[in-house]
Design a protein around this nucleic acid. Structure first.
Length: 593
RNA sequence: GCGGCGGUAGUUCAACUGGUUAGAGCACCGGCCUGUCACGCCGGAAGUUGCGGGUUCAAAUCCCGUCCGCCGCGCCA
């Protein structure tokens, strides 16, 4: 028999009455009635009430235990009298009449209460993460995450995917985010890098003849965090497949995602196959490449109408290269003037020059631009944006990228403000046909996403199409406005890759030196292949309905990538620095210790 | 790197326009209580108001700098 427990704390029922048991757990709450002491004992599985009669037998000198102390209680399972049954607990019909108690660990004053009081500042929660993990919500999230990951493995393995580990100590990658680096002791001045993703290795596994690879892979990026972006490190369900086209990847991973969300959430999930939206269309209609399709508002381009209208502010801007985007606000015409004023103010805070609108409380619109527009222009705008009486229509005017951003912000803001977003469903879509290249700040050509993506049309497009019009076999999976996943059909042809990198400004020598290892593989027979990498943290975050990704990570770093519990990153002493051939030069403003 | 919000007892929060001894809940310590389940009642201890500087007769409060936490922008192939 186990020394610490015969049952766990969520196990005992009326059918156990009369048995001698011993259970162990934390003191969740205790209630001292003088002649009678109740202790709610809690473990991973649940809570069981224990009753002590101090002053009798073993309890002659027993003190009320402090909250979160760890006890082993020995005693008999007894019925509670009908009026004292606790319907809130699965174990609420019984209690343990304690005969003796062993104190396994005494807990001092708590910086973070485990029972009750759910909202606590995150600084405290991060510093005492193990206490937070005992609490109901975070504990449940970690359990959920474990189940989701287990199901992912099951569903991938069923489809013939092999889970293969790839290195954590690897080579720095020239593209992408900043790397975390690890100094080498054996090779002075040289560094490993932690992988931003197992990108190169998974492609090399395809070169290695494995047909279908997956991994729950840690990814390390030294970038600023966000509410939905974990600081420092995160996990991907990394996937790669040989001899596939885009649709094959979709059909392998889409049903897995649909199943995971369906199995672990009550909310309805948009059924597979998911909608496919070309990147250019998404930028126009939703203002970004991660549309929240629960929001019914769709943006349209009103540049042509305003180019011919008498509203000089817009007309002049359009002549200078700006665009006008129209964002409908269904039902907003009945809103008070204050609603519109607030939005104008917020838009300015968001970086907009201003915010024009028409409000159709009746057929004849009101609003700052109404008097500048002909009846015909107004009719055209209404038709364009699908505006009826009772609606309003907002306009943002800016250079195209900025106009998209502002329109996207406005679309979200209106969707929330007008309560148009149904929070109780998951809407998935694929964003497809990403551009291969982007214009850098200095006007030069750079890869817009993954440089290893296959350009649509192959070598022919690279040679004959204007670079910024070339599309890639590159795709994202989006859910409720969250980018869940990014992937591509890869470029496995060295000559096409050389041409693509040449367009992006890499000379042959640099190309060979930075990607030599991979190129060599491609010159020795690598199959056509492609893959994708859904973000595990974000998936669990959506399923758990958490607004913040740290709520689904057992031990997250703070926003500034610091471990507040253990104190990482930490300084090294001189000896270890010497061993690593490192000298520290601190910036002028240094943090106090 | 930039902008916003916050930092007061172990902890969560309060303290009006700068003005008496910086208060309350939880936790902790002591006492009372035999059916509670966020038990209740009485009492106690607990403070470098993040840190540094400044303005003032007087600073938790105003100003400057700095550190920490969170949100957003830049960044994230």
């Amino acid at each position: 028999m186990n020394r610490y427990r015969s049952h766990h704390c969520g196990e005992l029922r009326a059918s156990d009455v009369g048995t001698e048991v011993h259970i162990s757990g934390w003191v969740h709450v205790s209630r001292d009635h003088g002649g009678l002491l109740f202790i709610d004992l809690r473990d991973h599985h649940g809570i069981t009430q224990c009753v002590l009669t101090p002053g009798q037998g073993d309890f002659a000198n027993f003190q009320k235990p402090s909250s979160e102390s760890v006890l082993t209680v020995h005693g008999e399972v007894v019925h509670r009298s009908p009026e004292t049954v606790n319907g809130k607990l699965p174990t609420g019909e019984v209690e343990i009449q304690a005969r003796s108690i062993e104190v396994q660990a005494v807990a001092g004053p708590l910086p973070l209460p485990v029972a009750g009081e759910p909202d606590y500042p995150e600084e405290t929660r991060l510093r005492y993460r193990y206490l937070d993990l005992r609490r109901e919500k975070l504990h449940a999230n970690v359990v959920l995450r474990s189940k989701v990951v287990a199901r992912m493995r099951e569903l991938m393995t069923e489809q013939g995917f092999l889970e293969i580990h790839t290195p954590i100590l690897t080579r720095t990658s020239p593209e992408g985010a900043r790397d975390y680096v690890v100094p080498s002791r054996l090779y002075p001045g040289r560094f490993y890098a932690l992988p931003q993703a197992p990108q190169v290795f998974k492609q090399l596994l395809m070169a290695g003849g494995f047909d279908r690879y997956f991994q729950i892979a840690p990814c390390f990026r030294d970038e600023e965090s966000r509410a939905d972006r974990s600081p420092g490190e995160f996990y991907q369900l990394d996937i790669e497949m040989a001899f596939v086209e885009q649709q094959d990847v979709f059909d392998a991973v889409g049903p897995v995602i649909e199943r995971i969300f369906g199995d672990f959430s009550e909310k309805p999930v948009s059924p597979y196959p998911f909608r496919q939206i070309p990147y250019a269309e998404s930028m126009l209609r939703y203002g970004n490449d991660k549309p929240d399709l629960r929001n019914p508002i769709e943006i349209s381009d009103a540049s042509a109408i305003f180019a011919g209208a008498d509203f000089t502010v817009f007309k002049k801007a359009i002549a200078d290269g700006a665009v006008v985007r129209a964002v409908p606000a269904p039902g907003a015409a009945s809103k008070a003037r204050r609603f519109f004023d607030t939005l104008v103010k917020e838009a300015q805070d968001e970086g907009s020059q201003g915010l024009a609108y028409l409000s159709f409380a009746e057929e004849q619109p009101k609003g700052p631009v109404a008097k500048h527009l002909s009846a015909e222009a107004i009719a055209d705008l209404r038709k364009l944006a699908g505006i009826g009486v009772g609606d309003a229509l907002f306009f943002v005017c800016a250079e195209e990228t900025e106009a998209c951003r502002l329109a996207a912000w406005l679309r979200t803001r209106l969707g929330e403000g007008l309560e148009l977003i149904d929070a109780h469903r998951f809407e998935f879509c694929w964003i497809v046909d990403y551009p291969m290249f982007d214009r850098a700040d200095d006007g030069s050509i750079e890869f817009s996403h993954n440089p290893f993506s296959m350009p649509q049309g192959g070598l022919d497009s690279l040679d004959n199409q204007p670079p910024f019009e070339i599309l890639a076999h590159q795709y994202d999976l989006v859910c409720n406005g969250v980018e869940l996943s990014s992937g591509a059909i890869r470029n496995h042809r060295p000559e096409i890759m050389a041409r693509a990198f040449a367009l992006a400004g890499y000379d042959g020598e640099r190309f060979e030196s930075e990607f030599g290892g991979m190129l060599e593989a491609f010159r020795l027979g690598t199959p056509p292949h492609g893959g994708i990498a859904p973000g595990v943290d974000r998936i669990v975050m959506l399923i758990a309905d958490e607004p913040n990704i740290r709520e689904v990570i057992a031990f997250p770093l703070s926003q500034r990538a610091e471990d507040l519990m253990l104190g990482a990153p930490a300084e090294l002493d001189e000896g270890r620095l010497r061993e690593l051939h490192l000298q520290i030069k601190k910036p002028r403003t240094r943090k106090p210790d």
